[in-house]
């Protein structure tokens, strides 16, 4: 079943008079299915973060439409947008973006607190997620008091606490060493499996991409290629590398 449909998205920077125009995205079309773990790959400057911001309703497309569950995001007003972000979308950021002023628990419940959920709902959801992700014992600690892995899981917990329709992950392994990176990817895959959560991950790392069931490759703002996961992990990884060598390098 299709959860998100992206139709003919264009994004042009410098639309003001006299500014040099730069088209970051050109005619992007794709669909995301429910329960899918989808990756978007591309070199720096290919427009993948722009795309993610548009999908996350942080940015607006110049034209084109994004449907989430049949609702056109572009048609939402500013206030509705904020609510839409809280209710439907979970974010996992590159450096987790946990607030140092809050304990892990406070960080995790923040989206629900902003949304105005009652204490009971907050507590039950928190208990379940924190137990599943194994951070129950460190909930009352501050981000700088726990390990990187625990911070990751707390960030994932925060993304999941509102029970979002889709989780958007922006280069989640970008700042991590390979072991922590792998742990995070395992975690995302586990979340995807156990909760059937739809995850859309932007990355430039082939290894990270190999965890996705489907990968969209972007080059110069256009979808260049699409790749589906294969049974054999090594084969899949090699296939990704092949595409990247064309897309990613100094191919232009």
């Amino acid at each position: 079943m299709s959860l998100m449909r992206v139709e003919n998205i264009n994004k042009v920077y410098g639309t003001r008079k006299g500014a040099r125009k730069f088209q970051a995205l050109k005619q992007i079309n794709f669909e995301v299915h429910e329960g899918e773990f989808i990756g978007i790959m591309g070199p720096s400057g290919s427009g993948k973060t722009t795309l993610l911001n548009i999908l996350g309703s942080i940015d607006r497309p110049t034209n084109g439409r994004v449907f989430l569950d049949g609702v056109d995001i572009a048609s939402l007003k500013k206030k509705q947008l904020a609510e839409h972000r809280i209710k439907n979308i979970g974010f996992v950021f590159q450096d987790f973006n946990l607030l140092d002023t809050m304990t892990l628990k406070e960080n995790i419940i923040l989206p629900l607190a902003i949304h105005g959920a009652d204490v009971h709902t907050i507590e039950t959801r928190l208990q379940k997620l924190a137990t599943d992700l194994g951070i129950l014992t460190v909930l009352d600690k501050y981000p700088y008091e726990v390990s990187g892995g625990e911070q990751q899981r707390a960030a994932a917990c925060r993304a999941l606490i509102t029970d979002p329709k889709i989780v958007l992950a922006d280069e989640p392994t970008g700042n991590l060493d390979s072991r922590s990176g792998r742990a995070l990817l395992e975690l995302l895959a586990q979340i995807n499996r156990t909760y059937n959560t739809t995850i859309l991950m932007v990355t430039h790392d082939a290894f990270a991409a190999s965890y996705c069931q489907r990968i969209l490759f972007i080059r110069d703002g256009e979808i260049y290629h699409e790749l589906y996961a294969r049974e054999d992990k090594q084969q899949y990884f090699d296939a990704i590398i092949d595409v990247v060598s064309v897309v990613g390098g100094e191919s232009k």
């Binding site: 609510e83 972000r85 607030l99 902003i114």
Partner: peptide
Amino acid sequence: QMLRKIGMDSEL
């Protein structure tokens, strides 16, 4: 900036 990303509107 982060709070805005996770859905803090200008009123809040």
